[in-house]
Design a protein around this nucleic acid. Structure first.
Length: 900
DNA sequence: GCAAGGTC
């Protein structure tokens, strides 16, 4: 019972609503008085309470998030007041901004007469940091304060009473980690933002942004990697080259229903091969059932919800933006319906009273009966939810905290649905086909979790050994597709996986991309980078700095964690991190030309200097042989790659693409002696040495008229540079996807998880899956012995063809994988038979037949992409057109209208 | 006019 002389306790919560809830719960709504503080929103609640027998006069008030901000000292605040590099060392200080002064005064006013200060800030790193801000303000006026921390995770009686009776000490390590994070973010953000804004804003006509007087080309360690995800996917799509494939489909109407069998070989990229196999099947078309398998399968409920999963599911099921989801979740939290919505945790602790939570739901119209069944010991249905393995040690997964008949809340029911899958395999002329059907035996959690579905389809009964004649047997064609643009749910996944932002801020970073005109979002919540966004990422990428990649943030986050665990000191982490970023900044500034060049690809210079008018006139190479009406001039396309194009564009689309490895090119006044009709002016090329084989001279006076073998070879080896290949990116990244229209089964090993193109069994040595992902190979350089990386060419002539490249900086070793294959006596013969585009395919698509396997020496006019494509049955395929402008004469990676 | 993190 309460005893002793009452003390006065100042309780401070992170926001007004929490102060109100805490006060209401602790006072049990009895004798609760409210009065105004100096700040309009932050009231002060008063009541009497006993903490472990000590009677207390409780004052409960709040802040609104952080009370203080980190700022540069006055002298450095103006943009032109200093060199941005100075911002890495300029003095900073933490102070209460003007709009928080009222809150500060309230705290001072109340703290002065209190004995205890109890901190009710959220139980995460930021909350701990805010706690120390409050402590700083309060102890300035009352240094005798006894400081305590309350730990709670939901605004419910059980948690709040438990917290106040078990007060602990605030955690300085947690707060230190946040201090370090704030300082790094401020210095990096301000320095890079000022640098790139001042460098580029006035130099280009950035027409995409409305009023460019206020445009800020911001850089931030979270917003930029977020943009990076969007741009990277966009580049993947751009560089995707549709590829035609063939597959055999079989159907059978047994009288009980129709079964559709799919070919276990999946998709063949070789037409001749597909036709031969198809004809075999047609000639010997009786099907024999060779295998019937029935297997019970389970579909498990999702893990308990954390913030990211909540946002993703809301986006997927309700098309709600992550920003809106968090607003709704916050409302539900404040109303006491759900637990704290900003949590990384996706597993319940042993202490959570799950039965209690389910008991609350027994009355619900829809899932009440299910809740009752779960709780019935006789039903045997109860099982604790499986965890996802994440625990932020601060909050439980998001779960309902009280019953609501009116709210469509988050179900907490957990029992797998049960289904049975029947798979039938048939043999036609030695070729295998299969089909499967699923019957759902028990819906279980799907009854209450109505957002997830589990397709159920039945198939007629077949018996092993049974024979039938297929109702249809067709050879069908399809085209591989690029992966889709990133959706909001995809983007959240990327950010979550790479640790960009917190649960509470991820949606802000996404919004920032839109606000800064770095990206746009379409009606399907999919993101496309703007020219501005792409140019910035491209510029840094060309410098070789992966500032747009998530690694930097991940490293910082790792260091912050070390600080929060007391493993590293704040000062040492700050010193190392800032030193690295400063040298990165200086390097970026030294290479600012790369940013200019990238911007030039998309925007015009705003003043006369350095415009690219000189491309159009005075760079004539020859008269256009196609339209015979205009000149062909040397140009750089939007990606910075060189080509010789007809001035009659867009009426005439004649173009000769030049190797992607060109650093500089200029038309000379020398004429070619052999090419006709003349004159054809020679071009002086300067190649990037590291991008051409060592036996080629980086300086070359070349001719595009057809007589120049060296130019043709370099075009073949280096490609003409679709965006990605020209810029030295391998396509070996694990994120690169092949988006086939149909699920592909490897023709070599029959596995589903890779296509025949990527079958590990078909490559030299025994590379592991991981090695394939990282591009590392078991093949060593024959010059220096260093292990080579395996890359995939992405050029017009050699797209999809793999090659080995020595990892050593000094060594330029390069070898096509297929030539190594045949030397080693591997199974390249079988492989090229299947994989290479054979004669039939080359008839349909002359632009595509030169690479892949054996195409060397066939290289003719680069960039000549067939205008029409023919399917297996000789009909034009309409899908093969540019996804940017719809024109079938080219693909998006060379679209002249791109970004228009 | 800069960041990211709280919150209104």
């Amino acid at each position: 019972m309460a005893g002793g002389r009452p003390i006065t306790v100042l309780n401070v919560a992170e926001k007004p609503s929490v102060a109100k809830s805490v006060a209401t719960i602790l006072s049990r709504n009895q004798g609760l008085r409210v009065r105004e503080g100096r700040s309009r929103y932050n009231k002060i609640f008063e009541f009497n309470y006993a903490i472990r027998g000590q009677s207390c006069n409780m004052l409960v008030t709040s802040v609104t998030g952080h009370l203080m901000e980190l700022e540069f000292e006055e002298r450095y605040r103006k943009w032109h007041s200093c060199d941005p590099v100075e911002l890495f060392n300029a003095p900073v200080r933490k102070l209460v901004p003007e709009d928080k002064m009222d809150i500060k005064r309230t705290l001072e006013q109340e703290a002065i007469r209190c004995q205890w200060l109890v901190l009710w800030l959220d139980c995460d790193r930021e909350g701990e940091n805010i706690a120390f801000e409050v402590v700083e303000v309060c102890t300035m006026v009352n240094r005798h304060l006894n400081i305590k921390r309350a730990h709670f995770s939901a605004l419910i009686e059980r948690d709040i009473h438990e917290a106040v009776q078990n007060l602990v000490q605030p955690n300085k390590y947690y707060a230190d980690a946040v201090d370090a994070r704030q300082e790094i973010d401020l210095r990096i953000g301000a320095s890079f933002t000022r640098f790139q804004t001042m460098l580029l804003k006035d130099a280009f006509n950035i027409d995409s942004v409305g009023d460019d007087r206020n445009v800020v080309l911001s850089y931030g360690p979270c917003q930029f990697p977020t943009l990076g995800f969007v741009v990277e996917r966009y580049w993947e799509i751009q560089s995707h080259e549709p590829e035609e494939f063939w597959t055999i489909n079989c159907s059978h109407n047994s009288g009980d229903g129709i079964s559709t069998f799919s070919w276990t070989r999946g998709n063949l990229f070789d037409y001749t091969c597909a036709v031969v196999l198809y004809e075999m099947c047609v000639e010997e078309s009786t099907a024999t059932v060779v295998n019937v398998k029935r297997q019970e399968t389970l579909k498990y409920p999702p893990h308990p919800l954390n913030t990211i999963e909540l946002e993703k599911r809301a986006s997927r099921y309700f098309r709600m933006s992550s920003e809106h989801t968090m607003k709704v979740a916050e409302d539900l939290y404040q109303a006491g319906f759900i637990s704290y919505p900003r949590t990384e945790t996706d597993c319940f602790s042993q202490r959570t009273d799950l039965h209690g939570i389910v008991q609350e739901q027994q009355e619900h119209q829809i899932w009440g009966a299910y809740a009752q069944r779960l709780l019935d010991p006789g039903s045997g249905l109860w099982r604790n939810p499986s965890g996802g393995g994440h625990d932020d040690k601060a909050h439980p997964p998001i779960h309902p905290t009280k019953f609501s008949a009116g709210e469509r809340g988050w179900s907490q029911d957990h029992h797998p649905a049960v289904g049975a899958v029947t798979t039938v395999e048939i043999d036609i002329a030695g070729e295998l086909f299969s089909t499967s059907g699923r019957m759902i035996l028990a819906r279980n959690y799907l009854d209450v979790y109505r957002f997830e579905s589990w397709g159920g389809s039945t198939i007629p009964t077949y018996a092993s050994g049974q024979q039938f004649v297929p109702t249809t047997l067709t050879l069908d064609s399809g085209v591989t597709r690029p992966p889709p643009l990133l959706s909001e749910a995809d983007l959240l996944s990327c950010m979550d996986k790479e640790g960009i932002g917190t649960d509470a801020t991820m949606h802000d970073h996404i919004k920032k991309l839109l606000d800064r005109f770095y990206a746009t979002k379409d009606a399907n919540t999919r993101f496309t980078p703007t020219n501005l966004g792409e140019a910035l990422v491209m510029g840094y990428d060309d410098m070789g700095y992966k500032l747009w990649k998530p690694h930097l943030r991940a490293l910082m986050e790792h260091e912050m964690k070390a600080v929060s665990e007391g493993i590293k000191r704040k000062d040492e982490v700050l010193a190392t991190c800032l030193q690295q970023m400063k040298s990165c900044f200086l390097d970026a500034r030294f290479n600012k030309q790369k940013l200019f060049e990238a911007m030039e690809v998309f925007f015009e210079r705003s003043n006369g200097s350095g415009g690219d008018e000189n491309h159009a006139v005075g760079e004539v190479v020859q008269r256009c042989r196609l339209c015979q009406d205009s000149d062909m001039v040397l140009k750089r396309n939007r990606d910075g790659n060189y080509m010789v194009g007809c001035l009659g564009f867009p009426q005439c689309r004649n173009v000769v693409w030049l190797p992607g490895s060109i650093a500089e090119a200029a038309v000379t006044s020398n004429r070619c002696n052999s090419c006709t009709p003349g004159p054809v002016y020679l071009i002086q090329f300067k190649f990037r040495q590291l991008e051409i084989p060592p036996n080629y001279n980086p300086n070359h006076l070349g001719c595009i008229g057809g007589c120049d073998d060296i130019l043709r070879q370099l075009t073949e080896i280096c490609g003409t540079g679709s965006r990605i290949s020209a810029r030295g990116r391998g396509t070996s990244s694990s994120s690169v996807q092949r988006g086939n229209t149909a699920q592909s089964v490897c023709v070599f090993c029959q596995q589903l998880d890779h296509s025949s193109n990527d079958c590990p069994s078909q490559v030299v040595g025994s590379r592991s899956a991981r090695r394939r992902q990282t591009g590392e190979s078991s093949f060593s350089c024959s010059n220096c012995g260093t292990p080579c990386v395996l890359r995939t060419a992405n050029t017009t002539n050699n797209r999809g063809r793999k090659f080995y490249k020595c990892q050593s900086q000094e060594c330029n070793f390069f070898a096509w994988e297929d030539s190594v294959d045949s030397v080693n006596g591997g199974n390249s013969a079988a492989r090229s038979n299947i994989r290479s585009s054979g004669s039939a395919a080359s008839n349909t698509n002359p632009g595509r037949n030169t690479g892949r396997g054996r195409g060397r020496g066939q290289g003719q006019g680069q960039g000549q992409i067939a205008a029409t494509f023919v399917s297996a049955i000789g009909e034009p395929i309409s899908d093969r057109r540019c996804f940017v402008c719809g024109d079938p004469s080219h693909f998006a990676n060379v679209c002249p209208n791109r970004g228009a």
